[in-house]
């Protein structure tokens, strides 16, 4: 199976500061799994979303804030947009929303082959969020109403170590 891994760098000057959106693209789940879903000492909060998903877009700022405010976690925003929408939709969206958390495009359309590898309980609706810390994980197909709710949820996971 061919593994395709491409990096897109978008460097935009924003006054004096530089906004850098770097979107790694995975067309196959296996490559994504290997590179992104790491079982190391970090706690990863992996949010599955898409630019076409209204409830996802609504909660993205909470994940962005989590990325900025909670040093205990690494936030990864996994877009499930189509590969063809990368330049037209995803990159402009990330720039417009000024997302600084890591954004990844997972464009593997063979959902039936990989959704269960994230979690058996995932029906395929998004948003959905996976937290990983070493061998521990917590998955939920759910939305978060505000930052506090998300932050408490993540901290509860961390504090159960």
């Amino acid at each position: 199976m061919r593994l395709i891994f491409t990096l897109f760098f978008v460097l935009t000057s924003m006054g004096c500061s530089k906004l850098s959106a770097q979107i790694a693209v995975y067309e196959k789940f296996d490559a994504f799994e290997k590179a992104v879903l790491k079982e190391d000492d970090n706690t990863y909060v992996v949010n599955f979303w898409a630019t076409w998903c209204a409830p996802c877009i609504k909660e993205l700022p909470y994940f962005e804030q989590l990325h900025k405010d909670n040093p205990k976690v690494k936030v990864i925003l996994v877009s499930l947009d189509s590969r063809k929408d990368l330049e037209k939709k995803l990159i402009p969206f990330v720039a417009k929303k000024q997302l600084t958390a890591e954004v990844i495009l997972l464009s593997d359309k063979d959902y039936n082959a990989w959704l269960n590898k994230i979690d058996d309980s995932w029906s395929g609706a998004i948003p959905a969020t996976l937290i990983i810390s070493g061998k521990r994980k917590l998955f939920a197909e759910r939305e978060f109403e505000n930052f506090t709710e998300l932050n408490n949820y993540v901290n509860a996971f961390i504090n159960h170590n």
Binding site: E33, L37, E39, K117, S121, K135, R136, K137, L138, A140, E141, R142, Y153, A156, H160
Partner: peptide, 22 residues
């Protein structure tokens, strides 16, 4: 990703109130 099923079971039980599984 190979997670320990027992740990998952234990952990998800702590979060029963949070899940929205239908």
């Amino acid at each position: 990703m190979k997670f320990l099923p027992l740990l998952i079971l234990f952990f998800s039980s702590l979060f029963l109130g949070e899940t929205t599984e239908s």
